[in-house]
């Protein structure tokens, strides 16, 4: 715990020094993101109808467009930790995925320094495969070299703590509890070093012991990364980690400023609803 306080202090003290020459790492310029969602089968899904749609190049009737982010602009600088807050479905996670280059923007543009990495618990893995194999596959998918993967694999499994109750690493992931699976996913994602780091709700994973370990890990990652974005519904963790906060509501940027001011306004808004 003492280490924790110390590290946070250092991070906040270091900021004014960096602020003298501010180098932008992420520039979001009037970004609009529109999703296409399939509502599921609602008739008209016969092969003949499908073929006709293919030929005419019209979209299926059961597709709905969701305008998730509506014209957001901001600039993030090196050394900043920025919190993203807002109610469920306000477009926070979508915006992070667009910054990571995983979702395309429909209008506007997002410019980034290097390749931002998204650290989430939802990274899809193969449930029919053992935890060990998933570790290898996940690391390779993040672009690691096989030698590096071989070196890190044991450490990742130790960190996730899935072997605390017997040898689970060699069992298929479908036999894991949801907490165990989430812990393993986080451990894989956190094994790599990142330039711009985007963290999506990853701090709320698992039991107390794991949460402590993962907060420590995120702090280490932050020290190595240029800019950190944190999406969270836990305002306390945003307050602890970020000095600047952006508040999104229904895809629109409501407020951008020092964490304390933004959270105060957000809380007033949430209570008045």
């Amino acid at each position: 715990m003492v280490d924790h306080m110390h590290a946070t202090d250092e991070a906040t003290v270091a900021l004014p020094v960096l602020a003298q020459e501010r180098i932008p790492t992420v520039v979001v310029d009037d970004a609009h993101i529109i999703y296409r969602v399939h509502k599921g089968a609602t008739g008209g899904s016969t092969p003949v109808a499908a073929l006709r749609r293919l030929v005419k190049r019209t979209s299926a009737p059961n597709v709905r467009e969701v305008h998730a982010v509506k014209g957001v602009s901001f600039t993030a600088y090196r050394g900043e930790a920025i919190g993203l807050i807002g109610s469920n479905g306000s477009g926070k996670s979508t915006l992070l995925r667009a910054i990571a280059g995983l979702l395309p923007v429909n209008r506007g543009a997002i410019h980034t320094q290097g390749q931002p990495s998204l650290l989430g618990v939802n990274a899809a893995l193969l449930n029919d495969l053992s935890g060990e194999r998933n570790v290898t596959l996940g690391c390779l998918a993040m672009g690691m070299h096989p030698d590096e993967v071989a070196q890190q694999a044991a450490g990742i499994i130790d960190f996730s703590g899935i072997n605390e109750r017997g040898d689970f690493a060699s069992l298929p992931m479908r036999t894991y509890s949801s907490g165990m699976a989430a812990r393993l996913r986080f451990s894989i994602a956190a094994a790599k070093k990142h330039d711009v780091l985007l963290i999506d709700e990853a701090l709320a994973t698992g039991d107390k012991g794991f949460r402590k370990r993962s907060e420590q890990r995120v702090r280490e990652l932050r020290e190595g990364a240029g800019t950190v974005f944190l999406v969270s519904h836990q305002l306390s963790s945003v307050r602890d980690t970020c000095e600047r906060t952006i508040w999104l509501e229904s895809g629109v940027l409501r407020m951008d400023g020092p964490t304390d001011d933004v959270i105060r306004a957000y809380e007033a808004y949430a209570n008045s609803k």
């Binding site: 501010r22 992420v26 520039v27 979001v28 310029d29 600039t75 395309p104 980034t112 320094q113």
Partner: peptide, 22 residues
């Protein structure tokens, strides 16, 4: 930021050599 004032977001990105995400 002094040298960057008055720049649009796109110009700012270009000045610092940022690339379009994805």
């Amino acid at each position: 930021v002094d040298p960057d004032t008055g720049l649009t977001q796109a110009q700012l990105a270009a000045r610092h050599g940022l690339r379009v995400a994805g």
